[in-house]
């Protein structure tokens, strides 16, 4: 592969792969969240619940091609998130919670932390290097998924 990345798990479409991301909070408008996942069979699921102005929950699903899964893997691999640990990241709090769960090759990470407002939150945390990787990876993944959902369904996902 062009990335020149790691070992056997780099085989296109090979090995196990699962990705899930959640961000949300409970507040004045109930439980508001955004969540998406890629399953190993290519199913991409997306849910977005905002109760603001009585919005209803959006639930979408579509099968993506092996190429799309491969691209998601590449983005994750290049981020090196699989080497990180969430031990010293801020705990989820009233403001919100993020979850990132990935199975790739023979590794499984299941991280959680608070919402991150900006890089200032990253810098002042106990693990700025790890949290920065998470911070940028999450944005890159959201960007990828929003484009896929937006192009396929012609809806504009809400940045949460």
């Amino acid at each position: 592969m062009a990335t020149g990345g790691g070992a056997g798990e780099d085989v296109p479409g090979g090995g196990e792969f699962y990705l899930r991301y959640y961000v949300g909070h409970k507040g004045k408008f109930g439980h508001e969240f955004l969540e998406f996942e890629f399953r190993p069979d290519g199913k991409l699921r997306y849910a977005n619940n905002s109760n603001y102005k009585n919005d209803t929950m959006i639930r979408k699903e579509v099968f993506v091609s092996p190429s799309v899964l491969r691209e998601a893997r590449r983005i994750i691999q290049e981020s090196e998130i699989m080497k990180e640990d969430d031990n010293n990241w801020p705990e989820p709090d009233r403001v919100g919670r993020q979850e990132l769960e990935i199975v790739m090759g023979n590794e499984h990470i299941s991280f959680t932390t608070s919402k991150i407002g900006s890089l200032v939150d990253v810098q002042t945390s106990k693990d700025p290097e790890g949290l920065r990787i998470f911070y940028y990876l999450v944005q890159d993944l959201k960007c990828f998924v929003f484009s896929l959902i937006n192009l396929h369904f012609k809806i504009k996902p809400i940045q949460s």
Binding site: R20, E107, F111, T112
Partner: peptide
């Protein structure tokens, strides 16, 4: 079924529930 998963890490392990 992640029988091939050798390493697991993270505070959320075993505790996540997802609407998805």
């Amino acid at each position: 079924v992640s029988q091939g998963v050798m390493r697991s890490r993270g505070r959320l392990l075993g505790r996540s529930t997802s609407v998805l």
